[in-house]
Each structure stands twice: as C-alpha cells, then as structure tokens.
Nucleic acid binder design. Sequence first.
DNA 1: CTTATTTTCGACACTGTGTTGAGAATGCTC
DNA 2: GAGCATTCTCAACACAGTGTCGAAAATAAG
Lengths: 209, 209
Amino acid sequence: MPAIGSRRAPTKGDQREQALLDAAKVVLREKPIGQVTIDELAGAAGIARSGFYFYFESKPALLAALCDQSIGLTDADMGRWLESDGLDRDALRQGLVGSFQRWLVDGRWMREVFLAPDPGPEVMQVRERVVNNGCTAFRQRIERDAKAGLTVDGSPTLLATMAINLRLTTFADAFANPTAHDPDELIDTLTDAILRLVYGVTPAQRTTA
Amino acid sequence: MPAIGSRRAPTKGDQREQALLDAAKVVLREKPIGQVTIDELAGAAGIARSGFYFYFESKPALLAALCDQSIGLTDADMGRWLESDGLDRDALRQGLVGSFQRWLVDGRWMREVFLAPDPGPEVMQVRERVVNNGCTAFRQRIERDAKAGLTVDGSPTLLATMAINLRLTTFADAFANPTAHDPDELIDTLTDAILRLVYGVTPAQRTTA
DNA sequence: CTTATTTTCGACACTGTGTTGAGAATGCTC
DNA sequence: GAGCATTCTCAACACAGTGTCGAAAATAAG
C-alpha cells in the first residue's frame, strides 16, 4: 500500500487489496457479515480463499480496513455544522442528510462496525477512533456554545455522546426498516431532536416545508 | 415446560431447561456470546454438549428464551411512568434507575439481543416484540400528552423510537464503559434528555440534588 | 413390575477458519 | 531480456465448533 500521497505506482498486490475491499463493500450490502464466508469475499475479488490471508488477517480485519477508508467521508458530512456556531439548523440538517445517504447504501456493514457488541479487536479500535473523533468535535462545539449560554446544563461529553448515539440508532433503524418513515420527516425530526437535546429549543424556522 | 400458571410439577427436563437458562445467564456475564461455545453452556448446566440440542435448537434460540423470561421485569420498570401523565420526572427517573440496574448486571446479553445487527431469527422475533411493546406504550403516552398540548410537534412514533433508542444506547455504553460517568449524573442527564426530546422542556425541580 | 416416555450422550458428517510451504508471477537491476 | 529477489497464489492440511442420529439409560405412568 503506497502511502496516501505517494508517487509510486500501485503494485499488483495493492490493486488486489483494493479489489478485495471494493468487492467486500458490495457483497456486504447483500447479507450480514456473519453469513459471508471468506471464501465468498476472496472469490468476489478473484482469488482463492487462502489468498485472502495474504492481505487480511481475518474478516474483522478487513471490515476495520473498510471502515478506515470511509472515515474521511463521514467526517466531511458534518464538518460544516461542527465548525459553525449556534444552532445553525440548516447546516446540521444538511450534514445529517449526507450521513443518512451513506447509511442507506452501506448501512449493513456500518451497523456491524458501530453497533455490534463484539466486533473483534481490530474493528473496536477503528470504532473507538471514529467515535472519539466524532464525540470530541461535537463536544467542543457544545462547549463553545455553552460559553455563549446557548446550551442546556449538563456534561458536554454526555450530551455529545447522546446526540451521536441518537443519530446512529436513527439511521440504523432507518436502514433496517426503510419504508417505516418518510425520509424528509425522519431527518427533520432528528435534526430538531438533536437541537432540543443540546440547546433545549426547537427553532421555528425551517428551510424546507 | 408447564404453562406459567400450571399446577403440574416441573419434570426433570423442565428443571434442566431452567438450569440451562440460569447457567447461560451467568456464563454470558463473563464473555460475549460469540466466544461462548455450546459445549460451555451445556457443561455449565451439567450435561453433555449434544444434550443441549434436546432443549434448544441453537445458541440464538437459547438467547431468545433468556430474553423472553426477562421481559416481564423490564416492563415493570417503566410501568409507573408510562401510566402517569405529564412530565412526571420522578417516575421517569425511577423507571430508568431500575432499567439501568438490570443493564449493569446483564448488559452483556442484552446488548446482543437489542443491539446486534443480525442476532438470528429467533432473537429478532423476541426483540421486535419487546421493542414494539415498549414503543407502543411510549407512543401512547406521548399521544395522550400531545392532546394536552404538552409535547413538541412531530410524529409520536418517531419520538418514542428515539427516546427508547436513546435509553438503549446510553445504557449499553454505560455497561461497556462503567467508569466513564457518574451513575447519578448519567441518569439525571438521560432523564432530562428524554423529557427535552419529547416535551421540549427541562423541568427545573429535581428530587435529588 | 412392565411399559411408554423422556432424557442423555457418543459417534459421525459437515462447514468454515487459519497455516504452511512449494511454486508461479511480478518487477527491479544491469 | 536474463537473472534475481520479492511478491503473490493456492492446494493441502489441521483444527474447532455446529448439528444430527440412534442406541442406551433414566424417569414417569399404568
């Protein structure tokens, strides 16, 4: 794997590794990881089962790598809101929309990474990194707004965790049960729920009807 | 298994089945289900591995049965609040405390049942029943209060789901990371978070400091 | 005590995982 | 483009865990 800014051309192995990740991403859209065999993953990337182990130590290891590649994207989603101040409902909503769209596509494996109780050490490491990043960014925003007297009382860390978990479970549910709610209503309700959670207010103005 | 109100004495098999459930409950406090073998579960109940299959079809089937037995308790926790009207912070808080205590003890398998993305059909069935019951009760309370003009706007179903998920993830996190927060603060924050989520208000009065 | 039913468990077949080492493909150097 | 080191591939193996079967033992019923 050439480093991210590397000038070196990707070797055959690098390509194969990426092919394995890409193939896995597709395969994992269909069925839960527990029901996907390594044989299947290897086959989808065009190699024999035992060849898989040249690239990844195990299924969870691949999953962790998969997640790792998607972190940048997830961060970008909420970036605008996280950097702004005050409620800024529009920015928050837009961030959630972006996040939501990713969930609708790759929710299968995202659930495994972020929700599964015991996804193995490799995944746990990535999860903790991602969650910590998210919580920290969120927490810092809350602390900023707390100084301006905008937020409710209560530990910013706890509030941030709750907000993030609320988003997580809402999207996970939406993935598991796509027809249960109207997407727009879901996002609006979630947006307001988070604002209410952190600021204790539901802003009256809405960009969309 | 004699029906719940049965007069018939439990046969040896009934006892063994219960022993299996009790033993599993204990074993599952130590390590995640994925790392517990059927051999281990059977051994803990004093029978051979293959004997396990006389009582349960599989590991998930036992887990579902385990959960099934605990439903009554979980319902009882929140009962008082669910039947009252208005915010009633004290009742809500007390319900959450009860629920929380159960989580601290049996959180390991409760996570598997309520959080795992793909716990198998048997568990899924029980989960859906429990979650639906909980959501329905919650939703009805919200609808009642909505008529009284107490709640925020928004689909009661969505609000109920969010509240329940907030509780779920908060307790699951607390189980996974017991020292991260002060229990009292956690419960207080969660109580207020739920009230804010549903009613848009944080009641000033608190029973406890 | 006899008979029917329930319970137990060893032995088997099967699926999926992870390892190893020999050989093939690749790419680097001159 | 021949030689050489490195990277990659995969068949064969060993193993752990699951689930099934049927014969025997334990229990309950008559």
